Amino acid sequence: MRTRLISLAALVVAVSAISAAPSVAATVSDQDAMFVKSAHQGNLAEIAAGQDAQKHATTKCVKTVGAVLVRDHGKLDADLKMLADKLNVMLPASPTEEQRRELAAVQAKAGTSEYDAAWLKTQDAAHTKTLSMIDHELKAGKNAEVMAAARAARPVVAMHLDMVRGGTCHAGKDARMVRAGSGGHLAAADGALATAELVSMAGGGLLAAGGAAWFWRTRRRSAEHR
């Protein structure tokens, strides 16, 4: 009987330890890692393009859209870098060579009316490509946190695309869904993940508490029958 009680006590301790242990992130697949890296480079490219538009665009509309890109992609990238660090994904230090060439081609028209048209056309193509990349991650991704980041970024990128679609400027499409420092959609995604973790911890805690109660009831009954 004593051996049985010791075994039950060990079980309760083991269950408690499991419930208290932090959740371990799922393995990051090649697809997930590639998405994180590409999304980071896309954010860097959009921030650079937005800053350039604020300096060289000739219309207020394009300058405004440029500011929106800096605001939103800055926030998205800050969260993405934290996720990459958590998942041990090494991020590139700069946009791709193609992205740098595209910006240079637009910059060559700085100070002219052609700049605005070229900038809008380039951003239309860039955000269309990014949206396709996000949709692919949502279909082929494996890591829940990476997919949550992609899901959170999608409406932001779609909003940006609406602002430059067809090479026409629509600054009024800014729904201000992501504000620097507020967390925006990513905050909602993080909240959902945090809620899931709390539920998991609570479930583990209840299991441990139930095991402890069962252990003490069994011990009490054994004592009464002696």
Rank of each mutant, 00 (worst) to 15 (best):
M1V: 12
M1F: 09
L5V: 04
I6Y: 10
S7V: 14
L8G: 15
A9G: 15
A14H: 02
A17D: 11
S19P: 05
A25L: 08
V28G: 09
V28T: 14
A33H: 06
A33P: 06
M34A: 14
M34S: 08
F35W: 10
S38L: 12
S38Q: 13
A39P: 06
Q41A: 03
Q41E: 08
Q41R: 04
N43E: 14
L44D: 04
L44M: 11
E46K: 06
I47V: 15
A49W: 01
D52G: 12
A53P: 11
Q54E: 14
H56I: 00
T59V: 08
T59W: 08
C61V: 07
C61Y: 00
K63F: 04
T64A: 15
V65S: 07
G66N: 02
V68P: 00
L69V: 01
D72R: 00
H73T: 04
K75M: 12
K75P: 08
D79N: 09
L80C: 03
M82T: 11
M82K: 13
L83G: 09
A84L: 01
K86C: 05
L87R: 09
N88P: 02
N88D: 13
P92F: 08
P95Y: 05
P95A: 10
E97I: 12
E98P: 04
V106H: 01
A108Q: 14
A117G: 03
A118W: 06
W119F: 14
T122I: 05
Q123I: 00
A125P: 03
H127M: 12
H127F: 11
K129I: 00
T130A: 15
I134R: 05
D135S: 12
E137N: 08
L138Y: 01
K139F: 10
K142R: 11
A144C: 10
E145I: 06
V146Q: 10
V146Y: 09
A148W: 10
R151H: 14
A152G: 07
A153M: 12
P155I: 03
V156L: 08
V157Y: 12
H160G: 09
L161G: 14
V164I: 10
R165N: 11
R165Q: 15
G167P: 02
G172H: 14
K173E: 13
V178H: 02
A180L: 11
G181L: 04
G183W: 03
G183M: 02
G183F: 04
G184Q: 01
A187R: 08
A189M: 07
D190M: 09
A192V: 06
L193W: 07
A194C: 00
A194I: 04
T195N: 14
A196H: 03
S200V: 05
M201I: 08
M201K: 15
G205I: 02
G205A: 05
A208C: 09
A208Q: 11
A208R: 07
A209P: 00
G210N: 07
G210T: 11
F215R: 05
W216I: 10
W216A: 09
W216H: 09
T218A: 12
R219Q: 11
R220Q: 12
S222H: 13
A223K: 13
E224Q: 12
H225R: 11
R226V: 06
R226L: 12
